[in-house]
């Protein structure tokens, strides 16, 4: 197995163009597991850990650009107010050791339906910035996931960064697992309120072949909230309940070792109701404070 270790993003793209089968390696927390289990025998590994650009994040025009290799620990510590959904999700990932190494870029690369960073990126309406020797692309997150562990990346491309708008309102993420830490999601849900645009963002994890949004639930809630943003009252129960139902209906879960389809649907409706209650309460207290 060849081991390639570029020290800049352009060199990395060059190497990827020369070795389109080379498997990028970032935190290695998915790649090394695959290698150890003999699930994958790549001809070459493209180690990205010496590419400094990938470890940086920056702010521009009300948006965040988060380098593909930025580890979860950095997101938790540095981006909790600007990307709260992603930061809450990052806190639920693995153990401290995993969070120190593992990255959002790797989560996107693996494109597992259970990837914890993915629902909040959907809810925030993010974009994936890719890079190759032929140039950069911005792929809307809603078009990134093509199937179970299958994404829109081309063989010659690398993930350079993700872009999300700086949060204009409360965001949440909640994940059901059968252990109180270090657990793969049985199902998960992310919700982002965007008071600036009146939009609602959602993301469902582990309850369909890919991470996905719940567009009907988003539209329903956006309509319900349209007149409430500036004079927020408590939300009527039936709105909260209906939102939960629409989120559950957007899922397409299966029975597997981690849980049953029925349970996943049920749990998603609970998570949707709760995250709506939390985010709306936060929005109300922010409005009151102004």
């Amino acid at each position: 197995m060849e081991f390639l270790r570029p020290t800049s993003l352009s060199e990395a793209c060059q190497l990827k163009a020369e070795h389109p089968d080379a498997v990028p390696l970032c935190g290695g927390t998915d790649v090394m597991v695959d290698l150890n289990f003999d699930r994958r025998r790549p001809e070459a590994l493209l180690d990205l850990t010496a590419v400094p650009e990938l470890y940086e994040w920056s702010r521009y025009d009300g948006r965040l650009r988060i380098g593909a290799a930025v580890p979860y620990t950095a997101i938790i510590e540095q981006l909790a107010t600007e990307a709260p959904g992603l930061a809450i999700a990052s806190r639920t990932v693995g153990s401290p050791q995993i969070r120190n190494r593992a990255s959002v870029g790797g989560n996107l690369g693996s494109a597992s339906p259970a990837g914890d960073a993915l629902p909040p990126l959907l809810a925030a309406n993010g974009e994936v910035e890719t890079m190759s020797t032929t140039g950069a692309r911005r792929i809307p997150i809603h078009e990134f996931f093509l199937g179970p562990k299958h994404n829109a990346l081309r063989p010659e491309e690398l993930i350079a960064a993700v872009h999300v708008p700086v949060a204009s309102g409360p965001q949440q993420y909640a994940k059901v697992g059968t252990r109180n830490a270090m657990v793969i999601a049985v199902c998960s849900f992310s919700l982002a309120l965007h008071p600036d645009t009146g939009r609602i963002g959602t993301g469902i994890g582990s309850a369909a072949p890919t991470p996905r949004a719940a567009p009907e639930a988003e539209d329903f809630l956006a309509a319900e909230l349209a007149d409430r943003w500036t004079a927020p009252d408590e939300l009527p129960d039936d709105v909260v309940r209906r939102f939960g139902e629409l989120v559950a209906a957007a899922a397409e879960p299966i029975d597997d070792v981690r849980g049953t389809a029925d349970y996943r649907r049920h749990a998603l409706s609970v998570l949707a109701r709760r995250t709506l209650t939390w985010t709306w309460a936060e929005h109300r207290s922010q409005e009151r404070a102004q």
Binding site: Y173, K175, G177, R179, N180, A181, V270
Partner: peptide
């Protein structure tokens, strides 16, 4: 939340 059911997975703030 670390001491509630679900722990850091943030599934409840006391509800249920």
């Amino acid at each position: 939340i670390r001491l509630l059911p679900g722990g850091v997975s943030n599934t409840t703030h006391g509800e249920g």
